[in-house]
């Protein structure tokens, strides 16, 4: 139904694909490159999903940049004593349950490793798809260790550990509104937790689709970007932990 308007002078639009007959464009094609714009091409889709993930992570970084600057500013900010009109420092150091948080950190780091195994596992599977399609060729029972569900489980374990840390904080007398410092502890851990929970959901989604007949390529894209996101969440946690520990 669609036609190029009469103003166009291409003799045969198909030539645009092949590049024979018409002088190719002077400069390399945009990011799309390739012979077509790669819209349905698997490799291009993976690259696009990764690019999208990087851009999404920039947005996540900005959220934490804002929270960190608020934290640093508030920590150094003298507060006015209303009686005398003079400024005093009121920053109260939070007594963090460091041991528990270290355990949580370990769990998250291990989950990052298992996530990476899951990513490599499915990458191998994709590479083997053309071989599998040859009649009579069987790869055998490829190592199908459930790295993905394990990662999701470890992620849930971390979230549970963070919740336990919150309980411990409450027992030590630091509720959300106790002091500015404790507000920030809850705020930073909760914001990270929400982002990680998103990662857990994506992991579970990928694990469930492996039971359905979804093509392995499509699943690989989900797994790939989720794992990169997961690694980033681990890094982010290390940063938050360091901030709360060393800049109390």
């Amino acid at each position: 139904m669609a036609t190029f308007s009469s103003t166009i002078t291409l003799k045969d639009p198909k030539l645009a694909h092949g590049g024979s007959g018409i002088r190719p464009p002077a400069v390399d094609g945009g990011g799309g490159g390739g012979d077509d714009n790669g819209y349905s091409d698997y490799g291009a889709r993976l690259r696009r999903a990764r690019l999208g993930t990087i851009i999404a992570l920039v947005a996540v970084v900005m959220v934490f940049v804002a929270l960190t600057s608020a934290y640093v500013v508030r920590r150094g900010l003298p507060v006015m004593d209303e009686r005398s009109g003079s400024y005093v420092r009121d920053w109260m150091e939070v007594n963090l349950p460091t041991a528990l948080l270290l355990v949580n950190t370990l769990v998250l780091l291990v989950s990052s490793v298992t996530a990476e195994f899951a990513r490599r596992q499915i990458t191998r599977r994709v590479a083997l798809v053309p071989v599998e399609s040859i009649p009579g060729v069987s790869i055998g029972q490829e190592r199908n260790f459930p790295w993905l569900p394990l990662t999701a489980l470890l992620g849930l374990g971390f979230l549970f550990g963070q919740w336990a840390a919150w309980r411990e904080l409450q027992d030590r007398g630091f509720a959300l509104a106790t002091s500015a410092s404790s507000s920030f502890v809850y705020l930073l851990t909760a914001t990270h937790g929400v982002h990680l929970a998103g990662g857990v959901l994506a992991m579970l989604y990928a694990a469930i689709t492996s039971l359905t007949r979804k093509p392995v390529e499509a699943r690989r894209i989900v797994v790939d970007v989720t794992v990169w996101y997961w690694h980033f969440m681990a890094l982010l946690w290390l940063y938050i932990f360091a901030l709360l520990e060393f800049a109390r």
């Binding site: 645009a16 190719p24 464009p25 400069v27 945009g30 714009n37 819209y39 696009r48």
Partner: peptide, 9 residues
């Protein structure tokens, strides 16, 4: 960044 047509620098 990623979906520009060929020649669309």
């Amino acid at each position: 960044l990623d979906l520009r047509a060929k020649g669309m620098t």
